[in-house]
Amino acid sequence: MKSMKLTPQKRVFFGGLIALLFATLSFATPDIDGRWRLDIELSTALDGWHSADLVIAQSGTKISIDHHMKWRTTLFDATNVYDTAAPVVMSDFFRIEQRHMAVYPAKNGHTHATATWIDQGRTLRLEIDTTVEVSQGDVEMRIYQEYRVSELGDTLTLIELHSSRNRPLVYVFKKVTEEAK
């Protein structure tokens, strides 16, 4: 068999092909976009909220996660916007929290967040440093989140680790279809 010689032209061609492949993989699949509804039965018990919907939308490298929370008759909405191109700083970061704990967003606190697509674009990884208020004052909490989209695109699993918590929180969301809305 003759060996394939890589001419300069061929090197350019294949190099461009590989670059194009990586470029494609650096963008998420569109599966994560849309409305997702918390499946209470499959998730870590959530105190202080009866239901949670996430509405995720991408615009270029930006990803917005709208939280639509409900507790009794109270409806609460909050949005976090991340950017895979660069870390962001938020003054009004929202996290789904266990509201029976005396842990509150710190007044005038700032949250630093880095977003990355991993696992061939199936997982959104967020690394968040936020300030919370506890009885001893303001302290830092490091949060690691992975939003994993299932192969069929119908389930979104949020796995969340806190620097202060050995037990991970796992929230499972189901895609809300047009009929179910």
Partner: peptide, 17 residues
Amino acid sequence: RPRDEVAADLNELIALN
């Protein structure tokens, strides 16, 4: 609330404070 989650919550408060 499941008891192991209550324990995890209390342990988290202990870690934060």
